[in-house]
Simulated assay, not measured.
Amino acid sequence: MNLNLLRIFIQVAETLNITEAAKALFISQPAVSKAIKNLESSLRIQLFIRDKHKGLMLTEAGREILVLARQMKAIENSIYQIAGRENRLLSGRIKVGSFPAATTNLLSKAIAVFRAKYPLVKIELLEGVSDQIRQWVEDRTVELGIVASPFDSFAFETLRSDYMVAIVPADHPLAKEPMIDLSGCRDEVIFCKGGHEIAMNAILGTYGIELREGLTVQSAETLIRMVRNGLGIGLISHFTLSSVSHDLVVKAIRPGVTRDIGIIAHSFGELSPAAKEWVNVLLQTSREPEQDKEKSTRLDRQVPGS
């Protein structure tokens, strides 16, 4: 199997554009087209469909081969990394999927520490929501993913524990209450999605509460602006909230909703040497400072089930 043809195939499959693939690979468009034709001829199958309206699309076989090609590329990367490790010069690249709050709270420090230790290893970061990241790990678009639980069937290491909180303006009637009961404010909740939905529905369901959020947003910044403007009570994870600045009052909720933030992979044992070192650095740097732990503990005591 010609690994160079596979590298070109992966680039075309990920961009679905011959021109963009050629630019990324620093070769000519005819060279890219020829490489794809040679690979299709070698395999005796069609990898792409050329549609006049939709453009380039992968065939079903092409999608399956893309996953395997990524595995072969990862194995090649591992071979060079092992050789580099033996020469005391670890190099290569790691592709990591993360959601924005995890990037801010966990990865920024970890990347700085890792780069100082392994300057020849390149970290490629893709950001999305937990469901997207799980899919990226599944189809091997990324080697590792940082997601909110549940971790499904993936191998995982827990990085942080997390829980949901409510946020209100300082002049809100509930700002002075010790805790906000969700069953009493279902119609004025603004919910920030981000991988919490499964945990929210499962736990609230055991209390007979059906959360009918008035507004649903995708980012913490949007949620904060809406709450500040008096549009409702914000419901967000403590972990996500800690990644943005705000002047709102944070309240514990009843019933308590918890989850974990973790790193997932198909198998930690099959990771490249650089990826294994990255996991070690991430585990070391993601430990909460004692001061943060004390703050979390004080709020946890108010949150049943956390």
Rank of each mutant, 00 (worst) to 15 (best):
W136P: 05
A35D: 06
V129D: 15
I75H: 03
A265G: 10
L3R: 05
E64I: 00
E221V: 07
V147W: 00
D260F: 02
R140I: 00
E177P: 00
L90I: 01
L223H: 04
M179E: 06
F114K: 03
V165D: 08
M72C: 04
I190P: 02
S149G: 15
E213Y: 08
V227S: 05
P273H: 07
R115H: 13
L144K: 05
I180E: 01
S78V: 03
D187N: 12
P289E: 12
A166V: 11
G84R: 08
L47P: 02
S243R: 10
R63N: 03
S33H: 09
H172N: 13
L283P: 00
L174G: 07
S28T: 13
R93I: 04
R259A: 13
Q291Y: 07
L43E: 14
I236R: 09
G262Q: 14
H196S: 15
I65Y: 13
L106G: 04
D131G: 06
V250D: 12
G97V: 05
K95F: 00
K193G: 06
R140T: 01
N17T: 06
T19K: 11
R93K: 12
S42Y: 07
F26A: 12
H53E: 14
I203Y: 00
N38T: 09
I79Y: 08
A35N: 09
L248M: 03
L283A: 01
I146R: 06
I82L: 13
A21G: 07
A69G: 12
C185Q: 09
K54D: 15
I8R: 14
P304A: 11
V168D: 05
